[in-house]
Design a protein around this nucleic acid. Structure first.
Length: 410
RNA sequence: GGAGGGAUACCCAAGCGGCCAAAGGGGGCAGGCUGUAAACCUGCUGGCAUUAGCCUUCGGGGGUUCAAAUCCUCCUCCCUCCA
């Protein structure tokens, strides 16, 4: 009996470690411990929730931080609910910014959600993931229900949120529905009776509200597992699709590889850490070696790029992406696979050729590229805007460092 | 209900009668260098034609003027304050 108990304790400790690894914060660890203990005793898995806003369907490395944690929890045998915020999406824009997002139709939401799911399942185990939609309970809610829900929270507490506080202080607008948002999200947890909710640090406030609201509804508050936010490829702002500084998990291998390579050395180290590509000790060691000059940061970055491609494709794709990258960027060569192009006339003037290849959106831009020395045919730089190119077939048009087309004689 | 502020190119933001295709920054693109699509330096960044030049753009319409992003007027939208 005593040994069984000890075994359980060890299991709980193990799970706590797995869940806590790489997090910024777990609120609250003691409560989590109690939940885990009870789960082991009763054999009922915990239910972990992740809310997904189906407005921007491309899952990127930033999302992967949270999804990966969810997968780990899943692998511990717990239940994972992937909650599509279709109802919230129909209302409009909840977060920060002033710009109103156009409301989406249910069809659009479903379409986005489908893409989202597909990509999320590159990380989550599709067999063990429960998909739900918050319209299921939020839709039938009456105004009366909403008032009741609103009555469980105060403005003062809402204003604890930095975002709201600073907007209020700076005389910037806060619309009412924005105040409702955390409540709605919190209610999702009530409806699901979630044990755990995942989120980035930017979600901390919402997660705390959820805990409070759950208590108000007589439930045990969920555990907030808070993950770090991943910085975008620009190294300045958080990774997000709308900022265009993201690396999508659904992008082609060469693209992922290349984008990782374009990131600064500093961001690279951050990616190693936040994406937990290596263990903390390995990363620390690597960092020291880079500092001492023992390792070239470039090689560390290549390793990162390769591992990430491997995570979303396989080792073969990673190798191929690396080969292509080396060929193009180190050796100034040509990738194996490049799109073909049959010009509308032969010979063609260089400006039309560039435009037909889609490498410039106007003649002026095409001319600019030529005069900047960005254009090559078979490795030979074209500097004369008037150049007429006679095509025999097989010539390689290169514009800039990374845009290629193979020309066909027609 | 009252008073005020604002809308400028991909984004932020100057300009407030001509010298404005419109400062500056960001982003993007290109070149150089390199360790790479890092960092750094330089250039370009409305379109057509590239010689000159022409056309379109400063929330929308209408005006004033030889000439407007800049002045007047109406409209639309956004924000703030007072009530």
């Amino acid at each position: 009996m005593a040994s069984k108990l000890r075994k359980q304790e060890r299991e709980v400790e193990k799970q706590l470690e797995v869940i806590g690894d790489g997090t910024v914060e777990v609120i609250n660890v003691d409560e989590l411990k109690a939940k885990l203990m009870r789960s082991l005793e009763t054999g009922v898995p915990l239910r972990a929730k992740l809310g997904a806003d189906p407005t921007a369907p491309d899952i990127h490395l930033g999302h992967s931080v949270v999804l990966k944690k969810l997968r780990e929890i899943q692998d511990l045998g717990h239940e994972v609910v992937f909650l599509v915020g279709d109802f919230t999406a129909l209302i409009g824009d909840p977060s920060g910014r002033s710009k109103t997002r156009p409301s989406l139709s249910p069809e659009e939401v479903e379409e986005n959600a489908e893409t989202y799911r597909e990509q999320a399942f590159k990380i989550l185990d599709p067999e063990k993931t429960i998909i739900d939609h918050n319209s299921r309970w939020a839709g039938p809610m009456t105004f009366r229900d909403v008032i009741e829900l609103s009555g469980k929270y105060t403005l003062a507490r809402m204003l604890e949120r930095d975002d709201f506080r600073s907007r209020l202080d700076n005389n910037r607008p806060i619309s009412i529905h924005e105040l409702l948002y955390p409540l709605l999200q919190a209610y999702d947890s009530v409806a699901l009776e979630a044990d755990i909710e995942l989120g980035g640090t930017d979600q901390k406030f919402n997660l705390m509200v959820a805990r409070d609201i759950m208590r108000e509804y007589g439930q045990e508050p969920e555990i907030a597992v808070i993950m770090p936010i991943l910085v975008g490829t620009d190294g300045a702002r958080k990774m997000s699709k709308s900022l265009g500084n993201y690396i999508g998990v659904g992008e082609p291998p060469e693209e992922i590889y290349g984008k990782v390579m374009s990131v600064t050395d500093e961001v690279m180290l951050d990616y190693y850490r936040v994406l937990r590509v290596s263990s903390e000790t390995e990363i620390a060691e690597m960092e020291a070696r880079i500092k001492s000059g023992e390792i070239n940061p470039k090689d560390a970055k290549k390793e990162l790029a390769k591992r990430l491609v491997k995570a979303y494709y396989d080792a073969k794709a990673a190798g191929a992406a690396e080969t292509t990258f080396e060929k193009v960027h180190r050796d100034g060569g040509v990738p194996d696979e490049i799109p073909g192009l049959t010009p509308s006339s032969n010979p063609v003037d260089i400006v039309s050729l560039i435009r037909e290849a889609g490498f410039a959106s106007s003649n002026t831009e095409a001319r600019r590229l030529v005069s900047q020395g960005a254009v090559y045919i078979d490795g030979e730089r074209i500097t004369d805007i008037e150049s007429e190119i006679a095509i025999e077939g097989g010539e390689i048009l290169k514009v800039g460092k990374r845009r290629f087309a193979r020309l066909n004689a027609d």
